[in-house]
């Protein structure tokens, strides 16, 4: 009965996988050492993250997976779901034991679960592309504070960078309290201590808003109201596509005034 603990990062997890082969451990669980203590009487082996070892496992995964699913394991990991590590671990054991093409074995519960979970993470990343709303501030920065369900901001940075190459922007994860800042050169991770925005709705304080920002928001809200076809009203459908939890970040969903 061995439990492997690690630091909760993806690199740490991959190191744990490496060590399980290296030291011939067959863990009954792999969990973050920061997490709650589930296994009181089990024997624990703590693994220190080692980038070189992680890299080797990662490359091994890349070799075995098809083009389409190269990021599959990483996405599933980002879901932070309870017990995701063991599911990935079992999957990797099968993958490395030479089973061809197991990523399509949807009859296997682990494969199916990982497929569905990585899909959810991808979908959440997609929602960032959909529902991020920048507010233009006085110092020229385009700011957005948002709360993704999973830690997906790093997944969408390159897309935003391509799209908004000529403006400075900051995507801030309000729940995890960090953001990615792009200064027209390259993105970097930042943590803001002195917040001039609401950490609930991400709305920037009025006094730091760029002149004109309010104008565009107002125009956007009227556009949104007038492009709707009243005779086709279908709130259920709207809600299906536009989850409630994002409404507070969207100017068009805030009460019109």
């Amino acid at each position: 009965m061995t439990i492997i603990t690690y630091d909760g990062t993806f690199g740490g997890f991959l190191t744990a996988v490496f060590e399980s082969y290296n030291r011939k451990i067959f863990p009954v669980d792999i969990c973050s050492r920061m997490g709650e203590q589930k296994h009181l009487f089990a024997q624990k082996t703590d693994i220190q993250t080692d980038e070189a070892k992680a890299e080797r496992v990662w490359r091994g995964i890349q070799q075995k997976m098809t083009e389409k699913n190269k990021q599959f394991v990483f996405y599933a990991f980002l879901s932070e779901e309870q017990g995701i590590e063991m599911k990935i671990y079992r999957f990797l054991r099968r993958l490395f034991s030479g089973n061809l093409d197991i990523e399509t074995d949807f009859g296997d519960p682990d494969v199916l679960y990982l497929t569905q979970t990585s899909r959810k993470v991808k979908q959440e990343a997609m929602r960032m592309l959909q529902f991020v709303r920048f507010q233009h501030t006085k110092d020229g920065l385009y700011f957005c504070g948002i709360e993704p369900r999973y830690d997906v901001i790093p997944l969408v940075v390159s897309q935003f960078q391509k799209r908004f190459a000529d403006q400075r922007w900051l995507l801030y994860d309000l729940k995890r309290n960090y953001g990615m800042l792009y200064d027209k050169n390259k993105p970097q991770e930042v943590v803001i201590s002195n917040k001039e925005f609401s950490s609930i709705t991400g709305q920037v304080n009025d006094n730091v808003l760029q002149e004109g920002e309010e104008f565009y928001q107002k125009l956007w809200k009227s556009y949104f109201t007038h492009i709707n076809i009243q005779e086709r009203k279908n709130l259920k459908l709207q809600r299906q596509h536009l989850p409630r939890r994002f409404w507070k970040f969207l100017p068009e969903m805030m009460i019109l005034n």
Partner: peptide, 29 residues
């Protein structure tokens, strides 16, 4: 592509940015 380092690029699958009360996608202005 945003080859000119200007503003904007295309995403092949398209992106809906909002949904009006009729449930229709708002992607373009």
């Amino acid at each position: 592509k945003n080859a000119t380092k200007g503003i904007g690029n295309g995403v092949a699958c398209g992106i809906c940015h909002s949904f009006t009360e009729d449930g229709r996608c708002v992607s373009l202005f």
